[in-house]
Design a protein around this nucleic acid. Structure first.
Lengths: 197, 197
DNA sequence: CGTGAATGTTGTCATGGGAAACAATGTATA
DNA sequence: TATACATTGTTTCCCATGACAACATTCACG
């Protein structure tokens, strides 16, 4: 018996999100079409509207999921690293840049101010990865490697540097094979620039 | 006599680019519509095609013009600064971030890998600002403030940091009133991180 | 002049987002 | 269980846009 296609798809929302993530990786956010996603899911072109009020809502959901995944990957990288500050920082930076360069379009969605007015979701979702960075800096200070002070400012600068490296590489302004070296340089410079005198 | 509208607009290309830059600033690249630009210019909806093969060509032209303007503004900032390295670096960073936060959408167009396959134009245009950064680093080394070495790597890290700060601010992940302080912190940390031992 | 290259215009098509009205299905509850 | 309501998906329609082709006007230059 070919199973009669159920009227209710069952998990359209997650199916759409998964397909969207694929399309995003392959063709970028600009090319992402709700109708095409609907076709792929074998569903009418208006069905997605039950789950995403409009195109932007879908993109916002993608960005939010992206932050969650980024958070998880950073946590995993930290867990795999040892207890010392410097290796942990290097591990985190490498993990961040792997994510950022493998999912360039997603990263762009997550960061470039494409969000809606009420983008508290996104800001809240971003707080996860930001928090990891913050905690790591605090650990560096506790271990006496970094100079004391509010970890926020230094953390933002570090985060910005990693984010910027990703942008330059993703924009083809820096050759991808330089990525690892530059990342290491950036982290080392960061440590040197804010280490305890 | 109401002047009969001339059949030939005369300078449609620059008119379109100017209008596009305005629209970009107000509504972002996604909302930019060739037909709307044509309407604004008082010209038929197909006229822009004579000057830009397609939408992407218009966006590429905008990005290229953006690099030229960025280059000019950085040069102006450097010219206004003194001869000492640190103030020059601070001036350049401030100028970069002013440009980057006032024209967020343009910056995104310039950097995020939205270019065509053959994007040599863009890479070449980007070389201008990159070169300034490079020269500035070299000057810092010559003045004995920075440790010697190939200026490229350090320059890329610095550029990335500024670019990343802009992304975070433009994405509302960092409050705009923190911008100046963070920029200063970033530059100071950079100098401390790569100064002569 | 007059001819060809630039530059604009009108008309058309396919694609896509969005909205409304309707249909099928699931669920709670009297 | 039967009926009311909520969820989810379908159909049908409208409109904006990008892209393209065929045609018109103007300009520059011999």
């Amino acid at each position: 018996m070919t199973p009669v296609p159920a009227y209710h798809h069952g998990n359209l929302r997650s199916t759409l999100l998964a397909a969207a993530e694929r399309s995003l990786r392959q063709h970028g956010a600009g090319q992402l079409s709700l109708r095409e996603l609907a076709r792929d899911a074998g569903v009418s072109h208006a069905a997605p509207r039950r789950h995403f009020a409009d195109r932007q809502a879908l993109l916002d959901a993608l960005a939010e999921a992206g932050f969650a995944r980024l958070h998880a990957e950073l946590r995993a990288a930290l867990a795999a690293a040892g207890a010392d500050f410097a290796p942990r920082l290097h591990a985190m930076a490498a993990a961040y840049l792997r994510f950022a360069t493998e999912d360039a379009a997603l990263l762009e969605l997550m960061f470039t101010g494409k969000h809606r007015e009420g983008a508290e979701h996104l800001v809240a979702a971003a707080a996860g990865p930001f928090g990891l960075m913050h905690d790591l800096i605090a650990q560096g200070q506790a271990q006496g490697v970094l100079e004391p002070g509010p970890p926020d400012r230094a953390g933002i600068v570090l985060f910005a540097t990693l984010q910027g490296i990703a942008t330059l590489v993703n924009g083809n302004l820096v050759a991808p094979d330089l990525l690892d070296g530059i990342t290491r340089t950036a982290v080392d410079q960061f440590i040197r620039g804010s280490r305890r005198p």
